[in-house]
Nucleic acid binder design. Structure first.
Lengths: 189, 189
DNA sequence: GGCAAAAGTTAATCACGATTAAGAAATCAT
DNA sequence: ATGATTTCTTAATCGTGATTAACTTTTGCC
């Protein structure tokens, strides 16, 4: 039984206990050690991953050969390369555990099987995606609204716990600037 | 009959002619003159809009009191403020016609009605959202990968027609820099 | 516990793109 | 057609954050 996931799904749609048992037989949990990869460039992304414990990051190597983090995956979030998952073309991304973690894999093949039998799963994923898309829109809005320094300060006050949980260089990468700059603004105040 | 939309939906899911007729009775097309608004800050977003003709833009006023475009809506794309639509809280965005346009409004209330009767509509919207989300991810990837000048040059070679279709200051806003800078790099080559 | 590697700091210089301002060109309305 | 408004251009100056490099601190490992 994958309780963390079931609880999450039941916040959005109704699932009976019998349905739950059937769904759970199709899912596979994996434990990941810090630095383990769920996806690497060149590989095709096979699943959407629900993070039931720990913390993952999604990143790629940019033109300057530097790691660029585009997303973190905390407990209760889904993480995947939707582009590769959808098209089944090779990914350009890494998905890696930042801390020891546990994920539940929702395979693309399972997606098609299960949504046939349980239409409310489509509703669930539609809602999850809508939330994720709204978050992405807000992120773009943020990037264009604030300077790097402002974005860091907002982020720190909004997610103080998270800031302590990740290495500074990862936070700098996620926010789109250099670790040196982060050091500088931290020293300032 | 809203053929542009039906065609679009049938690329993703199966819809019989009877279903189509029923769906269409719930939809309302509106024609918009250039500069007409579909949404303004403070208003709650009531619908998702399918652009059947013309071009719209979604933008907000940023901290520096300047229009910041976050999205264009071309023929065949959906445009809305998913955040406001979902939560029914007031929006911070404008949705405005850049050219004379025609949109089909898919009301939030209709969404709930129709997806009850036609589960394949959930599938359709899930797929649309997945595509939109993948695009937003790619956009973030882009912002962090290239300089402003590179992004402009890539955009121009990838969408030469579109560049001619919108005023330069809107393109500059969408790409996240000033019209002056756009002029400068255009003059360079 | 000691060494190596990873992560964080500090400071000097540099570059990309913003800002300001003024003028030119294009579009719109009467 | 004419004036008014909107859009685009050009140039000088300025500021944010990148780059480079040397050093310090922390973490991981046998």
């Amino acid at each position: 039984m994958h309780l963390a996931l079931l609880d999450h799904m039941r916040k959005y749609v109704t699932i009976t206990d019998e349905e739950a048992t059937l769904i759970c037989t199709k899912l596979k949990a994996s434990t990941l050690k810090k630095k383990d990869f769920l996806l690497q460039p060149g590989k095709v992304c096979r699943a959407n991953y629900f993070v039931s414990k720990g913390l993952l990051r999604l990143y790629f190597i940019n033109k300057k050969e530097q790691e660029q983090i585009t997303q973190f995956g905390l407990e209760g979030w889904w993480i995947t390369d939707y582009d590769s998952l959808d098209t089944q073309k090779p990914s350009r991304f890494y998905i890696q555990a930042v801390e020891d973690a546990e994920v539940i894999a929702w395979d693309k093949t399972v997606q098609e099987e299960l949504t046939q039998s349980f239409p409310q799963l489509e509703t669930y994923f539609r809602k999850i995606l809508q939330r994720a898309y709204a978050a992405a829109q807000r992120r773009i809005e943020y990037i264009y609204s604030y300077s790097d320094e402002e974005r860091y300060r907002n982020f720190s006050t909004n997610f103080p716990g998270f800031v302590q949980r990740v290495p500074q260089y990862m936070l700098a990468s996620y926010l789109g600037f250099t670790p040196q700059f982060l050091s500088k603004i931290r020293a300032k105040k």
